[in-house]
Design a protein around this nucleic acid. Structure first.
Length: 561
RNA sequence: UGGGAUGUCGUCUAACGGUAGGACAGCGGACUCUGGAUCCGUACGUGGGGGUUCAAAUCCUCCCAUCCCAGCCA
C-alpha cells in the first residue's frame, strides 16, 4: 500500500509503545487483529484493523490475523473468508501470520490441566442458572460453589471425562478458582471451559469442550508473543482475569492488554446483532447493501479503501467514548475521489433541450478533460447534437435570486460545448415542462467566446442521440437519528429508518462511454457527486451507486434563507 | 447505592507543570468552463468547586455527569 505523507498523530497507545521500545522491554512489537468469525466486519472493525496493522507497519513490527473461534455454534467458514477478503481489501497483509485460536485447543487443554494441578481450577456441577445465583450481584458478593473443594484427582478425572464426552452440555463446567467475593464479577470463579457438542468449522467433532474467551484470548496472545493486545473498553474489567491466566501458567510471553474506545458513527449502528436484524428482516438487501456500515457494504457503495484508512487515522485513538460525525467519513471519501475519479456527464432527471439554430442530423465531438486534478488522466471525446438532455433541476422558469443556471432568456454554458440561451418552454397538458428550446452561439464553441463575455452558469448535458439509459441508486444515511444509542425504549433501529436512504432512478441518461464501465469503477458525475458501477451493472443495463454527493454551495445558500 | 473507566471548540483529537494546537463541520471572502476543487481569512473549548505552584487541561481534594460489568457470547 502507498505510504502516507501525513504526519502521524500521537496517541496514548503510541506513547506506551515508544516507552516500551525505549526501555528495552520489547525490541519489536507484535499486534493482532482477533475477530470472531461470526459475522461481517464493519467500520468499527476497520478502525481496529487500521490501528493494529498500522502500528505494526509504523514501528516495523508485525500484526497477526487471528480468528477467535471458540464458539462453534455461532461461527462459520463463510465469515472466515469474508473477513480475510475485507482485511485484504482494506489494504493490509498478514503475510504468514494467520492463526486460529482453535489451533491452540490442545495446548489450552494442557494449560487447563495445569491449573487443576495447581488447585486453581475445578469442575463445577452447577447448572447455568445456579451459577448465576451463586455469582451474587453487583453489590452482593457471590457464594462458593459446593463443588469448589473437590480434590485435584477428582477434578482431573472429571475434566478428562468432560473431554471424553461423558457428560451432557450444561452438566459440568471447568471454573477458575479465584474469588467469589471479588467486586469484579469476572473474577468470581469464571467458567473457562464449557461442554458444547457442536461441530466446529475447523476442528470438526474432535472437541466437545471449548475454552471461553478470557482464558483463550490471553493465552493465545501469550503463545503468539503478542506484545500489545489492543481491545475495546468493555474488556477493561476483564484485564485482571487476562493477567491471572498469564501469571498462573508457564506462558512464553506476557502481552499487555490495552483498551481503547470503540468507534461509534452517527446515523448508523455498529452492533453485530442489530446489523444481523437489518439483514434478516429485509430492512436492507444484505450484508453488502451499500447503506450498511459493513466493509462489504462500503466496498459495494464505492468507498475507496484508502479513504477508510484516512478516516481511521483522522479519528484517532483514545479512551473516551465518542460519536464520530458521518460527515468526516464523507469528507475522506470526497478527498480521495476528487484526486482519483474520472469526470463524466450523466443526467439523472432528464429534460429535453433542443437547439433550434443547430443543424438537423448533424453531430460533432468535443474533447473533455477527464480529471482537472490529474493531468495524467487524459481526455476523451464526447458527442454533441441538436438535441440534448439536461438536468431538470438546472432550469427554473422563475429563477430565484442568485440563480446562475438556465431560465427563460438566460444564457448558460454547456460544459465543454457552447453557450445556449433559452428561448421557449414547452409544456404538456398538466403544465409539466417537456422541452426547452434554445439557440446557441456558434462563436462559443469549446466553451468561450472571442468577446470574452462572462457566463456564470455551466451545466452538464448528454447528447440525446447518443445517451445510454441507466439506473442510478441514490443512497443516504440509514437512520434519521444521529446517535442511535439514544433510541427510545422498546424501539428497534428500523423504527428510525431513513425513508430517503435509498432512491432508485430508472431513466437516467449517461454518456455512451459509461455503459462500458467496469463493475466497481468510480466516477464523478459532473456537478452531482461520485458514483460507482454496481455489482448489478452491465453494458446492457448500466447501474450506478451514488457514493457521496459533491458539496453543494448553492443548496447551502438556499438553506440559509 | 459494588467495581472499572472517561470528561478539552458543535464533532473527533493533541498538549504529559510553561503561549490550549490540528482536523471535520460553520461563517466570510477570492478564484473558477463543476455553485466542485483550490486559496485566504474568521469564530468557537479545558464538566464544577476548593487547594498546591511564579505558573495547572496537566498535581492534590471534593463534587457532578456519562459509559461498561451480574453469558457455560466475544
Amino acid at each position: 500500500m502507498e505510504n502516507s505523507e501525513k504526519p502521524v498523530v500521537s496517541n496514548f497507545i503510541r506513547t506506551i509503545i515508544d516507552r516500551d521500545l525505549e526501555s528495552g522491554k520489547h525490541k519489536k512489537i507484535v499486534t493482532r487483529f482477533p475477530p470472531e468469525p461470526n459475522g461481517y466486519l464493519h467500520i468499527g472493525h476497520a478502525k481496529s484493523i487500521c490501528l493494529n496493522f498500522g502500528l505494526a507497519r509504523d514501528y516495523g513490527g508485525v500484526c497477526h490475523l487471528r480468528f477467535d473461534d471458540t464458539n462453534p455454534i455461532k461461527e462459520d467458514l463463510e465469515y472466515v473468508q469474508s473477513i480475510m477478503e475485507d482485511v485484504r481489501w482494506l489494504g493490509f497483509d498478514w503475510g504468514d501470520n494467520l492463526f486460529y485460536a482453535s489451533d491452540y485447543f490442545e495446548q489450552l487443554y494442557e494449560f487447563a490441566e495445569m491449573l487443576i494441578q495447581k488447585g486453581l481450577a475445578f469442575v463445577c456441577d452447577l447448572c447455568q442458572e445456579e451459577i448465576r445465583e451463586y455469582r451474587g450481584t453487583l453489590t452482593v458478593p457471590g457464594k462458593n460453589s459446593p463443588w469448589r473443594e473437590r480434590s485435584i484427582e477428582e477434578n482431573l478425572d472429571l475434566f478428562r471425562r468432560m473431554r471424553a464426552g461423558e457428560f451432557e452440555e450444561g452438566e459440568k463446567s471447568l471454573r477458575a478458582k479465584i474469588d467469589m467475593a471479588s467486586p469484579n464479577l469476572n473474577m468470581r470463579d469464571p467458567v473457562i471451559y464449557r461442554i458444547k457438542k457442536a461441530e466446529h468449522h475447523r476442528t470438526g467433532e474432535k472437541w466437545v469442550i471449548y475454552p471461553m474467551y478470557d482464558y483463550t484470548h490471553s493465552l493465545s496472545d501469550a503463545i503468539e508473543c503478542i506484545t500489545h493486545s489492543l481491545c475495546t473498553l468493555e474488556f477493561e474489567d476483564h484485564r485482571p482475569l487476562y493477567e491471572w491466566c498469564l501469571h498462573n501458567l508457564p506462558v512464553p510471553s506476557y502481552p499487555q492488554q490495552i483498551e481503547f474506545a470503540r468507534l461509534n458513527l452517527s446515523h448508523t449502528v455498529m452492533s453485530k446483532r442489530m446489523l444481523l436484524d437489518l439483514v434478516k428482516n429485509n430492512v436492507v438487501q444484505g450484508w453488502d447493501d451499500p447503506r450498511m456500515p459493513t466493509i462489504a457494504g462500503m466496498r459495494r457503495r464505492g468507498f475507496p479503501p484508502a479513504a477508510i484508512r484516512d478516516f481511521a487515522d483522522r479519528i484517532g485513538v483514545a479512551k473516551a467514548s465518542s460519536l464520530v460525525d458521518f460527515e468526516l467519513l464523507q469528507f475522506c471519501v470526497r478527498e480521495d475521489l476528487n484526486q482519483n475519479a474520472k469526470r463524466v456527464m450523466a443526467v439523472l432527471d432528464p429534460i429535453l433541450l433542443t437547439i433550434e439554430n443547430y443543424p438537423e442530423n448533424s453531430f460533432e465531438e468535443f474533447e473533455a478533460i477527464n480529471n482537472p486534478e490529474d493531468p495524467d488522466a487524459g481526455t476523451r471525446m464526447i458527442p454533441f447534437g441538436k438535441q440534448l438532455y439536461i438536468e431538470r433541476e438546472d432550469f427554473a422558469e422563475e429563477p430565484p435570486k442568485g440563480w446562475f443556471r438556465l431560465s427563460p432568456g438566460a444564457e448558460v454554458r454547456l460544459k465543454h460545448a457552447y453557450y445556449v440561451t433559452c428561448k421557449e418552454v414547452i409544456k404538456d397538458a398538466q403544465g409539466k415542462i417537456t422541452e426547452i428550446i434554445c439557440t446557441h452561439d456558434p462563436q462559443s464553441r469549446g466553451g468561450s467566446t472571442p468577446d470574452k463575455r462572462r457566463v456564470k452558469g455551466t451545466i452538464h448535458w448528454v447528447s440525446a442521440a447518443h445517451a445510454a439509459d441507466a439506473e442510478v441508486r441514490l443512497y443516504e444515511q440509514l437512520f434519521t437519528l444521529a446517535d442511535m444509542s439514544e433510541m427510545e425504549e422498546g424501539k428497534a433501529p428500523e423504527d428510525y429508518m431513513n425513508p430517503e436512504s435509498l432512491k432508485v432512478l430508472t431513466h437516467c441518461k449517461i454518456e455512451p462511454s459509461l455503459a462500458s464501465a467496469e463493475k466497481g469503477e468510480r466516477f464523478q458525475f459532473l456537478r452531482q457527486g461520485y458514483f460507482c458501477a454496481d455489482l448489478d451493472h452491465s453494458p446492457e443495463k448500466p447501474v450506478f451507486n451514488r457514493i457521496v454527493t459533491l458539496k453543494d454551495g448553492w443548496a447551502r445558500q438556499q438553506r440559509k434563507q
